[in-house]
Amino acid sequence: MRIELRGVLKGYRSVRALDHVSLQIEPGQIVSLLGPNGAGKTTLIRCLAGIAAPDKGAVYFDDQEFTREQMELRHRLHFLPDFPFLFWEQSVLRNLSIVLRLFEADGAGAENRVLELLRDFDLLPLALRPVNSLSRGQAYKAGLVALLAADREVWLLDEPFASGMDPQGIDAFKRHARAAAGRGRTIIYSTQLLDVAERFSDRVCVIHKGEIRAFDTLDKLRELAQDKNNVLEEMFRNLREGRQ
């Protein structure tokens, strides 16, 4: 699904979280959102998920303006915040069944997909336990498994690498995300980890004070940078010093 933001402006009282942001994301890409704290990364994800309403401008999915009435568009994307939306007293498996049914992804083959994902994320032994008995990382993995099993066209993830997931989980997520991008899924995630963004994204979007400062492939950004080996670090240094 092609995503486009046209002049999106979003403010919280006197703070401009997004300042006339225009952006185009083609399907089948992994996009990392980078930026200092309070730059507007989460707001951008919330606008895409329909949770935050832009004050001006609009979000388009496949050239169709996204409004709250268009539920068929909303069902094509899945949002996973830093603390996943789960029924904490229900078991992991029950949560999965609720999400799958909600996204109408409970058809034939769902069981094999769920089984494989639970194995990959080491959640199979915990599948019948209530989520509130799991650690934060395990609970996040439960939300992530729901997202992967529902397999929507657009995945929106807020800080997935700061969620307490173990290296095994992070590795499994990257693997599944790469495969999904290959199938045409668009994955947009925010992160503060520059090395992760460098290795795990097709395009990097740098936001600062609500403005898009850079949105390109790493190779292109490297061409513009002085320090070719530490492109993103240099960019952040420049942002901090107000040079870019």
């Binding site: 069944s97 769902a110 069981e111 019948l128 209530p130 509130n132 008995s133």
Partner: peptide, 27 residues
């Protein structure tokens, strides 16, 4: 089936859990 409560979580081994999933009991 897969329904559990917070007070009494179902304690099953991996094979039994995998079977619950494979026979789509959770769905």
């Amino acid at each position: 089936g897969p329904e559990t409560s917070a007070d009494q979580p179902v304690r099953l081994g991996l094979t039994a859990i995998a079977e619950i999933i494979q026979i789509r009991a959770f769905l």
